[in-house]
Design a protein around this nucleic acid. Structure first.
Lengths: 131, 131
DNA sequence: ATTCGTGCAAAGACTTTGCATAAAT
DNA sequence: ATTTATGCAAAGTCTTTGCACGAAT
């Protein structure tokens, strides 16, 4: 991602680079992915800054965490993504994609006396680029 | 869990204790849970042994890993559990339960050109003991 | 001048591993 | 005696944090 923001704006600093990475990438991203993409525009960005910026953007509600079974968390722009959706993880390239819709009937699965408040569904397979 | 095996058997050693913990607990267990349960029978068991034993039992195919979004992995007896099932995580006590059945139609969710090979479903809520 | 952001290195949490010792065969 | 398992402490990985410096206001 290229940093095209004016030198005088707050966006010229590293944080702006991290924001830009998310803005120009549609998929949920892992910190390392963010770092590598950020370095394209600003080679000296550090992993600390990536982590710190992600944390702050989460606090701001601008990012949300994508938890995946067996994988470290990814992050995606909160507003860009509708209330409830799931994810597809490519077992070849390890990239994560958003899945539209949900369409699962979970009520029958909930044990007697348990109360369901949320659920996570993760699909695994090969993405379009890896088949 | 009590160690009731004869002193001369291989089962008197720590590994046997770990095996016993899984045998007498129906839920998927985290390493720390295994350690605490194992200590009831054998107070000097170390966390290393728990991790090493889990790894070995996984290699043997006796245990299988239960990956959960946002949580460290749990382990459960492989044979005890039917081919395909999912899990319920209690948001109060953090315990994990097996869920029978699956009943989700995922085909409509898979993006064009992607190939689905597996899926994970995790339910979150309050378990019977925590409501 | 003061506030805020950043890189670096150190510290944390969780898991794995090397090594000397103890147990089993 | 030889092989295998264990505890402890050290090392690894991923993430967070303290600190001094640089940038913004």
């Amino acid at each position: 991602m290229k940093n095209t923001t004016p030198k005088t704006s707050r966006m010229t600093r590293q944080r702006g680079v991290v924001v830009g990475v998310f803005e120009s990438n549609p998929r949920p991203l892992a910190p390392e992915e963010v770092l590598n993409l950020a370095k394209l525009g600003q080679p000296k960005v550090s992993l600390s800054t990536v982590y710190r910026t992600i944390k702050r953007l989460l606090d701001d509600g601008w990012l949300k965490t994508v938890e995946l079974p067996g994988l470290s968390p990814r992050y995606e722009i909160a507003g860009k993504h509708h209330s409830h959706h799931h994810h597809f993880v490519c077992i070849m390239c390890d990239r994560t994609y958003d899945i539209e819709g949900c369409g699962v009937n979970l009520r029958p699965l909930v044990p007697r006396g348990f109360k369901l408040t949320d659920h996570h569904l993760t699909l695994f397979g090969q993405c379009g680029s890896c088949r």
